[in-house]
Design a protein around this nucleic acid. Structure first.
Length: 595
RNA sequence: GGCUCCGUAGUUCAACUGGAUAGAAUAUCUGACUUCGGAUCAGAGGGUUAGGGGUUCGAAUCCCUUCGGAGUCACCA
């Protein structure tokens, strides 16, 4: 591409003109700012040391050299230390000719490397998925697609936390007050039903704690000693011992939850290549800890608990096995990491997990290395920020949790209401309409969440999320629908635009801007993959769409009397639509042909 | 309290990882061919990038410091 051509040429020019060859990093090429003439800009400051001339003179010399050497560069101007280069129309036209009909445009060549394993979602089986999981799921799904587009083999895996005290709480509450109810009898999704019992446990338990405290027991002690809590712990022990009754109830209730999750995942449009269950991996973790003990890299204390001493890494000691021999979260994660690595021999292990677990992942890597696994370096924690609501943090106990299913349904309804109001698709069948509302509603939700840099905390304002104007998913979908409409019309009128025609005319500035933006699609995918950031891709698509809409507004297509120009513009539009669709697909968002 | 992260228009987000006069959207105000689809486009106002100091040709970005916020430091996950 043009950037590479320029870099090579500038490098040679420096050698010829100034006698030194610069590092590639010193050659900084960026998009020219809107207010100046040009397409690409070279920042010359890093080169003035070797040129021993003023920035302006350096820029001028390089500009003249480039203009003489490269047919792609037709003009240049110098503003302060910036060399603005005007790229020849022929280059852009050639670019369009080469790629406009390439369905794979943007996708990078296969790297032929070890697969990238990406874990996301990782739910607990005691309650339904909420807004926090939504960000996780959307991020994981999109990052996987982006990394795949960048040429890697990707494996999507889920890790279900299906064992532990929290599940026992739901089970116990169901046993006591459930009256043998099932999701079918209750007419409820399984994950919701189980979640209800989790809440019920908490309510009943609170009452008991209150009573204990009234008899003079300290709050902390009361929380541990409440009869319900003790009963739940006993249940957990029975579970670990393999008690048949408990295991079968556990399996039954977990299955309810899974069928609920499946529905949520399906509507969200996400899938996994493999699902790991902690109940199946925690024993492996234990054996890894044993291994560490024999190697002498872990320590056993007098009470029998096992610890990792991380003081040489500047951290504290970390518990790996309880005194009673049962495992903790870290133990299980050691096991799953090993299992996963062995399953795929992964070149990279990505974990999509909230930033509240940053410390956990630091420790995980260090402990794995201590035990002797060099591949611990391949672990990459995609640490994303929390989703906050206008009224503050989501708290399950205060009922401010935004439920994933309800949220999706609300978005569907909003799309339905708005679309009906506009009345543009009143000829759609019921099925077609439903499909469209789903596309638009979920598109709005997904884009709203993915456009924010994953690392940052984000604000989820329900009122703003249902706004479909501006920098939103529906805005992008609308542009796609509009282009589709244009192309339909061309077809109806029998205008063919797949043929390469004679481009012997000057390009409109708006056309160049669109072509320039399209030109950057492959490098944007590479950048987004490197940074594990769907936000970078989102912003790219948004910019593309804005450029197109400006073009659309200013430049006539069917009214154009020059047939060649008209055909060119149709082809440009088609190419734009294709990149919009391709990019949105990497975000997990579909685009309609009409809306 | 220790450690980590964050602080950008009223609000929600950008700024290609140190480059030009910090950009969008939203909200507010104004305008657009009786429309190739107005879920669009154009324009206006809105900023001491939390405050202060430093590093250099150049800082929202790097360093120090103060203030403010979040997370974490469990024999929870």
């Amino acid at each position: 591409m043009i950037e590479q051509i320029l870099t090579n040429c500038i490098s040679k020019a420096c050698l010829e003109l100034f006698g030194t060859q610069p590092e590639d990093q010193q050659i900084q090429i960026q998009k020219t700012k809107r207010e100046f003439e040009g397409d690409l800009t070279l920042v010359v400051f890093p080169l003035v040391k070797m040129s021993r001339k003023s920035p302006a003179d350096t820029a001028k010399m390089l500009g003249e050299h480039l203009q003489n050497e490269l047919t792609e560069i037709v003009r240049f101007n110098v503003v302060q230390g910036f060399l603005n280069l005007v790229v020849a129309d022929a280059y852009w036209v050639d670019f369009l000719k080469t790629y406009a009909n390439d369905q794979q445009f943007g996708k990078l060549k296969s790297k032929n490397q070890a697969p990238v394993v990406i874990e996301f979602s990782s739910p607990n089986t005691n309650k339904p998925l909420h807004l926090g999981h939504v960000r996780n799921n959307l991020l994981g799904h999109s990052v996987a697609a982006i990394v795949e587009a960048a040429g890697y083999e990707v494996k999507r895996v889920n890790l279900v936390n299906d064992r532990g005290i929290h599940i026992c709480k739901s089970m116990l509450a169901w046993q006591k007050w459930g009256h043998e109810i099932t999701p079918e009898k209750a007419g409820k999704k399984g994950d919701k039903l189980v979640g209800d019992f989790y809440v019920l446990f908490d309510q009943k338990n609170k009452i008991e704690i209150q009573k204990l405290m009234e008899t003079g027991v300290e709050a902390k002690a009361a929380e541990k000693e409440s009869p319900l809590m003790i009963e739940a712990q006993q249940m957990l022990q029975k579970w670990e011992q393999g008690d048949e009754e408990i295991r079968s109830l556990w399996k039954r209730m977990n299955d309810w939850v899974y069928s609920g999750f499946d529905k949520t995942y399906a509507r969200m449009g996400i899938r996994f290549d493999k699902t790991y269950y902690e109940s199946e991996t925690y024993l492996l973790g234990k054996s890894l800890v044993e291994e560490g003990l024999t190697k002498g890299v872990l320590i056993k204390k007098e009470d029998g608990s096992v610890w990792a001493d991380l003081s040489d890494s500047g951290l504290d000691e970390k518990l790996l096995l309880r005194a009673d021999g049962t495992s903790v979260y870290m133990t299980q994660d050691l096991g799953t990491a090993k299992l996963r690595y062995d399953d795929y021999r992964a070149g990279k292990l990505i974990y999509v997990v909230g930033n509240e677990q940053n410390y956990h992942f630091d420790v995980l890597k260090i402990v794995l290395k201590k035990i002797g696994f060099d591949w611990a370096d391949r672990i990459k924690h995609l640490s994303y920020g929390m989703v906050e609501l206008p009224e503050g943090k989501m708290k399950s106990r205060e009922g401010t949790v935004v439920d994933a299913d309800e949220l999706m349904e609300e978005m569907f309804q909003t799309a339905k209401n708005l679309t009906s109001e506009l009345g543009k698709v009143s000829d759609f069948t019921i099925e077609e309409s439903a499909e469209l509302f789903e596309m638009v509603g979920l598109g709005a939700l997904k884009y709203f969440i993915l456009k924010v840099d994953p690392k940052k905390n984000m604000m989820f304002n329900p009122e703003e999320s249902v706004d479909f104007t501006g920098n939103t998913g529906p805005f992008i979908q609308y542009t796609h629908a509009r282009i589709s409409s244009l192309l339909r019309k061309a077809n109806e009128q029998g205008i063919t635009f797949d043929e390469i025609v004679d481009f012997g005319f000057e390009l409109h500035p708006k056309e160049i801007r669109i072509l320039h933006q399209l030109h950057e699609y492959p490098s944007t995918i590479a950048l987004a993959a490197e940074n594990l950031s769907p936000a970078m891709l989102s912003n790219y698509i948004y910019d593309l769409v804005r450029e197109y809409n400006q073009f659309y507004q200013e430049v006539p297509i069917f009214k154009e009397t020059d047939r060649n120009k008209m055909v060119f513009r149709l082809q440009l539009s088609k190419f734009t639509a294709q990149v919009i669709k391709s990019g949105m697909e990497l975000l997990g968002i579909q685009v309609p042909d009409r809306m």
